[in-house]
Amino acid sequence: MAERKFKIWRGDQSGGKFEDYDADISDGMVVLDAVLQIQANSATDLATRWNCKAGKCGSCSAEVNGMPRLMCMTRMEDLPADQDVRVAPMKTFPVKRDLVTDVSWNYKVKKRIKKFSPRPADNADGTWNMMQRDVDRVQEFRKCIECFLCQNVCHVLREHQKQDEFIGPRFFLYAAALEMHPLDTEDRIDELKEAKGIGYCNITKCCTIVCPEHIQITDNAIIPLKERVVDRFFDPVKLILRTLTGRKAKSKAASNA
């Protein structure tokens, strides 16, 4: 058992500061264990979110030594032993109290994305046939645990605060899962370009780096969506054709017809 020094951010909207705490560290402990130990022993009003403690629910997101992490999946022995452990709330979202931030914007954004709408069932019993190879990619996207670390680290949201024009990596991933779902008939390409601001992403891949589920957000979701936008709106050959014929860019439903 070794004692480690912690600096945990305490405060609310009106301001706050890092306060010092000690925690007894035993084998295999993660940062969340230490934070809960501090909460139980010396700071019973220390606000923090957590649920599953196994990297499956995405509740305990925070910045540990400046890195966006799930506290439950950050082992103490992986942090430098000669430094204090600094734990701060996610910076991109308004702080509510201590380590708890207001992530409600994410829930509002999701609600505005057109919902799943499947083609008519393939079989009389209301079921569909889908091959595993056709759902592998969508299943990768659906591993997302909505920890919002990708949103937290994305500079379009973090530095430039484009929350009104840009939905962030989590929801490009969500849109990609719907767009690439073999049964879905809805079309979201126009709105991804216009209202969702996919053009702002300049593929720095910070989201992919912090994803605790190791989802290839940039390569597998955002870039293919960008390609679909480019294909529809900026393909020079199609642009010329459209100018000549006076037709508009085709939606997914029209292309499928």
């Binding site: 609310d12 909460q39 019973t44 009003d45 220390l46 606000a47 923090t48 509510k96 109290r97 201590d98 708890v100």
Partner: peptide, 10 residues
């Protein structure tokens, strides 16, 4: 319990 009513796990 200590502190106030805002997000107070105790």
């Amino acid at each position: 319990v200590h502190g106030n009513r805002e997000f107070n796990p105790g």
